[in-house]
């Protein structure tokens, strides 16, 4: 299945900001996070097709996954 992954803010450093790739059927958000080498503890908002999801969300063909780092400073 094909999934488009959009990375934002600091997650773009050393990675392609928007990339559509082939992933094994049944892949979760966590699988893609691991594959991209994104530190899980730095993740804030995750959206699939503009809807908020959790790390265990299974993806389907054509999904667009957006991952934002957690911004916690003030």
């Amino acid at each position: 299945m094909q999934v488009t992954v959009k990375l934002f803010a600091s997650f773009r450093a050393g990675r392609t900001p928007i990339q559509t790739c082939e992933y094994p059927s049944g892949s979760t958000v966590m699988d893609i996070v691991v594959q991209k080498g994104i530190p899980v503890q730095e993740i804030g908002i995750m959206l699939v097709n503009c809807r908020h999801v959790q790390l265990d969300q299974e993806l389907v063909d054509g999904d667009v996954l957006a991952i934002f780092p957690l911004l916690g400073g003030g």
Binding site: Q41, G44, M46, H52, L70, L71, G72, G74
Partner: peptide, 24 residues
């Protein structure tokens, strides 16, 4: 739900990136 950490932590990437003068 949009303020929380995916992994349940309390600090974000500011603990690594810091905060410069202009962002705040």
């Amino acid at each position: 739900i949009y303020l929380a950490s995916a992994a349940g932590g309390s600090k974000g990437v500011e603990s690594r990136l810091g905060n410069p003068s202009f962002t705040p």
